[in-house]
Simulated assay, not measured.
Amino acid sequence: MVRDALRQRTVWRGLSDVPADWPSCAVTIGVFDGVHRGHAWLIENTLRAAAERGLPTVLVTFDPHPARVLGLPRDTSALSSIERRADIARELGVDRVCVLPFTPELARMGPAEFVENVLVNALHASSVVVGANFTFGHRGAGDVATLRHLGARHGFTTRGVHLMPTDGAECSSTHVRGCLRRGDVLAASRALGRPHEVEGVLTSDHEVAISEGTALPRPGRYAGLASGHPVELVVTSSPRSDSETLELQCPDIPGALGETVRVQFLEQRGT
């Protein structure tokens, strides 16, 4: 009964959730924050590799963002929640999503140990598809060439996929965050393949309470949608903190107070 439940679960929260009898599969690995067009291209290549051998697919992602755990000076504001990330991956055709808790212990794993523990022993990978700039293992010691070498030892193939360009830059989560910092939600939409969206709880003062660390566009006014309803969106920054708030302005606020709403940013109206 427990084994059957694990086999049917589409999101695995750690390697302990992976059924012991999970079959050989095609795996893709990355943070996948936002699941932008570049990620979709990577997933498409993974699905193609899986179809060639009649394999199921597994997307491996990390939570929290590795750079946050490692203390790297990078913007790690979230473009999507883990739940939304998994939903989009499944919509694109991925069979299972494996969320690895990114802990200091995982960060200390060498490339060979990561491959053995995650790809070989737990997931039984037969094919691994990653971005051409993929690094893994302690201090990023492993790259695509390392993965290919270890794959030859353990019996899986490795495919490195070139990054997709967008607006003269690499289509990446870093690029999307940069667009949002400039308030250029149209450029962010082009990279994502859909409008940037956040989820939050509707409060009594027409504000949406969002999770700390969520990526928002720069303070200003935006045309948008809230649960499919046209709204004016106002992003404001508190002078007493680095946090930002999101306000909805429309004659008829959609949803009941305390209800979760999904907000999409369509166009900048001005500051």
Rank of each mutant, 00 (worst) to 15 (best):
L163Q: 10
G228E: 15
F136W: 09
R181P: 09
T260S: 14
H162L: 09
G258Y: 08
L147W: 01
P111K: 08
G155C: 07
A49H: 02
T158H: 14
G142F: 02
N45C: 01
E212P: 13
N45V: 08
G193N: 11
L225G: 07
A152I: 07
P195Y: 13
L42W: 01
R68V: 12
H154S: 09
E83T: 15
A122F: 06
R262M: 04
V129H: 01
A122N: 05
T271G: 10
D143G: 12
V234H: 15
L42Q: 03
D184R: 06
E267D: 12
R194G: 08
V35L: 02
V18F: 02
L202R: 12
A125T: 11
V263I: 10
T76F: 12
L100H: 03
V234L: 04
R90P: 09
L119G: 03
E170T: 10
G200D: 07
G160Y: 10
L123C: 06
L55W: 02
L186V: 15
V263R: 03
F156K: 01
N117Y: 14
L216C: 13
V185H: 02
H124I: 02
M164F: 07
E267V: 14
G71H: 14
R53C: 13
G34V: 14
F114A: 01
A5G: 08
E197W: 05
A125R: 08
G38T: 04
V35M: 00
A132I: 03
P111Q: 10
C179L: 01
G93P: 12
A223N: 09
T214W: 13
E232G: 14
G213W: 06
V261A: 05
R84E: 06
R53Q: 15
D205K: 10
R13G: 13
A67C: 10
V208K: 06
V31D: 07
A67T: 08
A122T: 15
F62Q: 04
E91W: 12
N133A: 00
T10K: 04
A122G: 14
S241A: 14
I82T: 04
S80F: 05
V201D: 00
R159A: 13
A67H: 11
S243L: 14
F102Y: 14
E91V: 10
V35H: 02
R13Q: 11
E259N: 02
S241F: 04
H206T: 13
H154M: 06
I29A: 10
E105W: 03
F114T: 02
L6C: 09
S237M: 11
L163V: 13
Y222M: 00
L257K: 08
L72M: 11
F156R: 00
G183K: 01
V115M: 01
P254F: 11
V176K: 00
